[in-house]
Amino acid sequence: MIGEKALKGFFKRNGLLLAFAFFLAVTALNAPAFLTVGNILDVLRQVSIVGTIAIGVTFVVITGRFDLSVGSGLTLLTVIVVDQNNIVGPLGAIIMAIFGGLMVGVWNGLLIGYLKFNALIVTLAMLSLLQGLTLWYSGGANVNVHNAQTTWYAFFGRGDLFGVPVPVWILLVGGAIASFALMKTRFGRSVFSVGGNETTSKFSGINAPKIVLFAYIISGFATACAAIIMGSRVMGAQSTIGQGYELNVLAGIILGGTSLLGGSGSIWRTIVGVAMLGFIQNALLLMGFPYYIQWLVTWVVIILAVWIDLAAKRGKILT
């Protein structure tokens, strides 16, 4: 009977992964192009932008907070990095984007960590501010990299290393570093502690505002990295390029099984979640559904993932 229990527990914990494996099998049968190396790398390349941001946002979510500003952060930073390529060159542009990402993180982190403002409101307001800054910067016009065919900047979005796209490398290497920081270091331990119980953290001498600030800075930095990849891949940007990314990021994190209440989660879960989302959307496209289906899919996935999470906690399907 213990065995039966363990099995039940396994299904509860990994039910989503199993359902996903089933989905992969069904799709592969219907669309033979689906499980080819080319397509898999393609999907990974597509999710690398969402994934890179999600790595950063995972830190924020584990502290029990949100970051809804990453979508419009991605827009602004991509516009900047693309446009500045023509003005100060690739290196300068990259430095500016990273600086911008860090600044967004600092502001969010100061308001939420030190002044204890509500994270949803602060980052939603930041979303609006960044959208405004984008329009102010670009005047609403599209921007392009003029020397797109010759610049070394193309490496980040279009390059290959050992047959694997560079954005995928960035996702995996970034993920490995982030995972190490989260699971093995003092900082990571503090992140879990702040998300698990802030009062206890305070009684344990942990500087919770500082930890929250750093979580947002990581989120901002990850967004900047994603913007650099995005700009390099598209070699252009307009003021809607990052729209909806905050939701895809959140969907991936939830799908990976990180609790929005804080105190638990992991980087690899987030990457798996984001990849699952990417494969689902890709499969639907391959099966001939129209492009806008992905918005619907995001909705379904978020609701389903939250539902499964709750059901596992309650031990039953409905309330």
Binding site: T185, F187, G196, T200, F203, S204, I206, G263, S264
Partner: peptide, 29 residues
Amino acid sequence: KEQGLVLNMSGKNNVTLPHLVKYSNYTVM
């Protein structure tokens, strides 16, 4: 529950929580 422990953390991690510096080498636990 409110001040003493982080409930969803392991016993080991709770014990060393106030002394992270002492239990790490160059920031690695």
